[in-house]
Nucleic acid binder design. Structure first.
Lengths: 155, 155
DNA sequence: GCGGAGTTGTTCGAAGTCGAACGACCGGCG
DNA sequence: CGCCGGTCGTTCGACTTCGAACAACTCCGC
């Protein structure tokens, strides 16, 4: 490691831009969701995944895998959602240890109310700021970056 | 807002990829810095900015502006750094309210030890995963995205 | 010089995140 | 049947972050 390859200007701009953009975008969307629907971004993602799942329900572990949060973090957020009545916990029929998180009607309603505003915000701060070909490049590149850091996904 | 423009597959891939990539990259670098130098990423950035500043010192507010953290967050991190002896607080000569954060020799030394490994990690998980033209596109696009969300930068 | 509006950095409480430890439970093998 | 490594979800304590409130102070117009 005696000859570190430093970042040239172009690389530095990409790196700094990435850092600033990811921070600001995350903050902005967090604020938008909270103001519009009283949801944090992790909570919103939990609702989305449950809404797409069969029976609107998923095991805690399945939920935690897709989400990029820890198991304990998921427990915390599901607690919050349950106290608001957007999600219910049921015990898993095939495994006594297991817990099923189930989206309630109210949860689905809340999600449907929040989704358009959230998507609009995503467009406003990211997608619609980019040219079409930039979106394409970004999708390809980030798929590679994300996959590479995924715990166990050789593909 | 009755006709939300949803994201098509390509846009969705870009958005999801952005989310996953920014989370995983941030986590990975946080872990790398902590293991190699006992620094958090915010702390590392503070050291970098101080090292580049005249007299290796900056006002707290100047520091907070460049950094993407709040004032209180900065106070907390500078407290940490000061307890480790990497930074010292001095009162500002031209403004009694002001506080100058000054990088110590030990702070500079720690930074120089940490920098090569950090840069290598940035290359490994982001820059070197991308093609040259992808880096270029990314730099341009993110500059626009970041600038757009900046509090006060009409340009 | 003076008074009020704005700035500066810190403190405080609330919130969220993580990893490690934990009790409870599954499943296979003897 | 009985045991034992592995899995499930929660709990716990430590850490970090944020915004609002705060006291001290500057700066500008008069």
């Amino acid at each position: 490691m005696d000859a570190p390859r430093w970042l040239d200007d172009r690389e530095m701009a990409a790196w700094q831009g990435f850092l600033e953009a990811s921070n600001r975008v995350a903050r902005h969307l967090e604020a938008q969701l909270r103001d519009a629907a009283g949801l944090s971004h992790p909570q919103y993602e939990i609702l989305v995944r449950l809404a797409d799942a069969p029976d609107r329900s998923l095991r805690m572990t399945e939920l935690a895998d897709g989400l990029l949060t820890s198991k304990s973090g998921l427990t915390y957020q599901v607690d919050r959602l349950e106290k608001r009545g957007l999600v219910v916990r049921r015990s898993c029929p095939t495994d006594v240890r297991g817990v099923l998180a189930v989206l309630t009607d109210e949860g689905l309603h809340t999600l449907r109310e929040a989704a358009p505003g959230h998507v609009a915000a995503v467009r406003e701060v990211l997608i619609d700021v980019l040219e079409d070909d930039e979106v394409t490049v970004l999708a390809g590149a980030f798929d590679r970056v994300g996959r590479r850091l995924r715990p166990h996904d050789g593909a």
